[in-house]
């Protein structure tokens, strides 16, 4: 969904006060300009979210002998209870938790190191390196997944021979999926961090140099603290993206049996809705996933504001 990480945390931002006093007629013009987006936001985000909440409270049941067809029955939080008790959902949450633990540190630390290297004075051909690492971002996720699936596959790809073990085996498939995501996102986040680093005032960096701080020291005590808001926004977006991981495991499913149909919570939702046809359970699971995303991003943002004080 969202693709850019801004310097400032969006949650903390407020529209600035209107600069000039306006007449009523002008207010109307602003509303006209905002209207197309407002309509889209209501019809493709707000209404579906409310509809999902509504669906999650009902289930389809055959009543009596079932001659009258399935009935829409209000079950309170019954769907939530059955999702929370479902072992497959637990397994999915466990998988994305592990996936996030592998993917988020390796990708963001990699991106940060590369950005700091690009920002250091000694590098030649900056643009070439940054474009090379950025290119995978322009590759559609399905195709990135397919390329790596072939590279992993024991019959076609070289990786099994290179590593000495099967990257699609039961124990290796999770890091293999994380690697696809890391490959795709490291360059993008590197560019975001590098852009933020260029806004670090040069005088501060020069002053640190003059005081005898080396490259590592300058990066650690000056540059990283200055771009910390950018880093935290990147963490929030990566956490949300990791919890929703869907495409990469779906693609690998065609290559190995080790990825189950409910491997991640998003796949669980897909399976419940479009394979099992259990709308209530699917909606409840998707709402739970959204709540987990919201709570985790709030925790990360809270952590970031506390640390910077």
């Amino acid at each position: 969904m969202s693709v850019l990480a801004p310097e400032r945390a969006p949650v903390l931002d407020e529209p600035s006060a209107a600069p000039v006093t306006r007449t009523r007629k002008k207010d109307f013009a602003g509303l006209v300009l905002a209207m197309p987006f407002l309509v889209l936001l209501v019809s493709t985000v707000l209404v579906p979210v409310l509809y999902a909440l509504y669906l999650s409270l009902f289930t389809e049941r055959l009543q009596g002998l079932g001659f009258s067809g399935p009935q829409h029955v209000f079950v309170w939080l019954g769907n939530y209870v059955s999702v929370i008790a479902d072992k497959a959902f637990h397994a999915g949450l466990g998988n994305v938790a592990l996936f996030a633990l592998v993917h988020i540190p390796s990708m963001l630390i990699g991106a940060l190191i590369l950005a700091l290297l690009l920002d250091s004075a000694v590098v030649r051909l900056r643009r070439m390196w940054s474009l090379a690492v950025f290119v995978p971002y322009a590759v559609p996720v399905v195709i990135g997944g397919l390329i790596w699936a072939y590279l992993y596959s024991p019959t076609i790809g070289p990786i099994k021979n290179l590593l000495g073990f099967d990257p699609l085996s039961d124990s290796a498939v999770l890091p293999s999926i994380a690697n696809i995501a890391t490959w795709q996102w490291v360059g993008y986040n590197m560019i975001i961090f590098y852009t933020a680093l260029q806004a670090v005032p040069r005088e501060i960096v020069e002053a640190a140099r003059a005081d005898g701080a080396g490259g590592f020291r300058t990066a650690w005590s000056i540059k990283i603290p200055v771009i910390r808001p950018t880093i935290f926004v990147a963490v929030v977006f990566t956490v949300i993206g990791s919890l929703q991981v869907f495409t990469e495991p779906m693609v690998l499913r065609g290559f190995t049996g080790t990825v189950t149909s409910t491997w991640s919570p998003s796949m669980y939702v897909y399976e419940a809705a479009f394979v099992a046809g259990d709308n209530g359970r699917a909606a409840a699971a998707s709402v739970l996933l959204a709540v987990i995303c919201a709570v985790l991003s709030a925790v990360v943002m809270r952590f970031s504001t506390r640390r910077s004080r």
Partner: peptide, 29 residues
């Protein structure tokens, strides 16, 4: 940013919330 129609702060808040809504929630509805 540049006009002051009524409800623009609410719209902006909703927009920021919209950034965080996962696609997974939207697909079935």
């Amino acid at each position: 940013a540049k006009t002051s129609f009524p409800g623009r702060k609410l719209l902006f808040a909703l927009t920021l919330t919209g950034v965080l809504v996962p696609t997974t929630v939207l697909a079935l509805p």
